[in-house]
Deep mutational scan, measured.
Amino acid sequence: DEDSERELEKLRKNNASKEEIKEVLKRLGFSEDEAKKLAEKAG
């Protein structure tokens, strides 16, 4: 959803580590696997 998109955008701009991105995604309700895949894509 839009909030998670914004959250990811912010992380990308701040050069967050894949680990940080994954944690945020998991907080947003993604499964471990989904979060890992998305973090890879974002990283």
Rank of each mutant, 00 (worst) to 15 (best):
D1F: 14
D1I: 12
D1Q: 14
D1R: 14
D1W: 14
D1A: 12
D1K: 14
D1S: 13
E2L: 13
E2R: 12
E2Y: 12
E2C: 14
E2S: 12
E2W: 14
E2P: 13
D3I: 13
D3L: 11
D3T: 10
D3R: 12
D3N: 10
D3H: 10
D3Y: 11
S4F: 15
S4M: 15
S4L: 15
S4A: 15
S4R: 13
E5V: 13
E5D: 11
E5I: 14
E5A: 10
E5M: 13
E5T: 09
E5G: 08
R6L: 09
R6K: 13
R6C: 15
R6N: 11
R6S: 12
E7D: 08
E7M: 14
E7T: 10
E7A: 12
E7S: 05
L8S: 02
L8V: 03
L8Y: 06
L8A: 02
L8T: 04
L8D: 07
L8G: 03
L8P: 01
L8F: 06
E9P: 06
E9N: 04
E9R: 07
E9Q: 05
E9A: 06
E9Y: 00
E9M: 00
E9F: 00
E9T: 03
E9S: 04
K10G: 08
K10F: 08
K10L: 08
K10W: 04
L11R: 06
L11I: 07
L11G: 05
L11W: 00
L11H: 07
L11S: 07
R12T: 11
R12S: 08
R12H: 11
R12P: 05
R12N: 08
R12M: 13
K13M: 07
K13W: 03
K13N: 11
K13G: 09
K13L: 05
K13F: 04
N14M: 09
N14K: 12
N14E: 09
N14A: 13
N14I: 10
N14F: 00
N14R: 14
N15H: 13
N15V: 05
N15G: 15
N15W: 00
N15Y: 01
A16L: 10
A16I: 06
A16V: 06
A16P: 03
A16W: 05
A16S: 06
A16G: 06
A16K: 06
A16H: 04
S17D: 08
S17T: 10
S17P: 05
S17I: 05
S17W: 05
S17K: 05
K18R: 10
K18M: 15
K18H: 10
K18Y: 15
K18W: 15
K18G: 07
K18P: 14
E19F: 00
E20H: 07
E20C: 13
E20S: 05
E20F: 06
E20K: 10
I21K: 01
I21N: 02
I21H: 01
I21D: 02
I21R: 01
I21A: 05
I21T: 02
I21V: 05
K22F: 15
K22T: 13
K22P: 00
K22C: 11
K22H: 06
K22A: 06
K22Q: 05
K22R: 04
E23G: 03
E23N: 06
E23C: 10
E23V: 01
E23H: 01
E23P: 02
V24T: 09
V24S: 11
V24P: 02
V24E: 10
V24Q: 10
V24K: 09
V24D: 07
V24L: 13
V24F: 14
V24M: 14
V24G: 08
L25R: 03
L25M: 05
L25K: 04
L25N: 05
K26I: 15
K26N: 09
K26D: 09
K26S: 08
K26H: 08
K26G: 09
R27S: 12
R27L: 08
R27H: 09
L28T: 01
L28C: 13
L28S: 02
L28E: 03
G29V: 00
G29R: 00
G29I: 00
F30S: 01
F30G: 02
F30H: 03
S31F: 03
S31R: 02
S31L: 06
S31T: 11
E32I: 00
E32Q: 01
E32A: 01
E32R: 00
D33R: 01
D33W: 01
D33K: 02
D33M: 03
D33N: 07
D33V: 07
D33Y: 02
D33S: 07
D33L: 05
D33F: 01
E34H: 04
E34D: 10
E34C: 13
E34N: 03
E34F: 06
E34S: 03
E34T: 07
E34A: 08
E34K: 02
E34Q: 08
E34P: 01
E34R: 01
E34V: 09
A35P: 03
A35C: 06
A35H: 02
A35R: 01
A35T: 03
A35F: 06
A35K: 02
K36M: 14
K36P: 04
K36S: 14
K36Y: 04
K37E: 12
K37S: 11
K37Q: 10
K37V: 11
K37I: 12
K37M: 11
K37L: 12
K37D: 11
L38W: 06
L38V: 08
L38G: 04
L38C: 14
L38F: 05
A39L: 13
A39F: 07
A39N: 04
A39I: 12
A39C: 13
A39W: 03
E40C: 09
E40F: 00
E40M: 01
E40K: 01
E40I: 01
K41N: 11
K41P: 08
K41I: 12
K41S: 12
K41M: 13
K41V: 12
K41C: 13
K41D: 13
A42W: 15
A42R: 08
A42T: 12
A42N: 14
A42F: 15
A42V: 12
A42Q: 11
G43V: 14
G43I: 14
G43R: 09
G43P: 10
